[in-house]
């Protein structure tokens, strides 16, 4: 990979770029994961709430449980960037 003409600055710059790509992947992929997980839960939660208004609190709770995944991704991304 490293050509003869590569300077130290270029290596550092490409490392910074790679970590930015990593941060993007971390948020993006965890976002997809959360979305997939919330898809089924959300549909069921809306159904349950339509049947019984009192379910709302519990339904919201169930729906947002997978959100933790994307928060982890965001934490990793922020740690990578800063």
């Amino acid at each position: 990979m490293v050509d003869v003409g590569t300077t130290l600055e270029m290596v550092q710059a490409s490392q910074a770029g790679m970590s930015a790509v990593g941060a993007g992947l971390a948020v993006g992929l965890t976002g997809v994961g959360t979305g997939l997980a919330e898809m089924g839960i959300g549909a069921a939660a809306v159904g349950a709430t339509a049947e019984n208004r009192d379910m709302f609190g519990l339904a919201l709770l169930f729906t947002v449980i997978p959100e933790t995944i994307v928060i982890f991704g965001l934490v990793v991304a922020l740690l990578l960037l800063f």
Binding site: E67, T68, I71, F72, L74, V75, L78
Partner: peptide, 16 residues
């Protein structure tokens, strides 16, 4: 661990 780290959203969502 996940519950404690979940509070990181206070910073993360704000930053976004």
């Amino acid at each position: 661990i996940s519950h404690v780290l979940s509070y990181a959203r206070l910073t993360a969502v704000g930053l976004s």
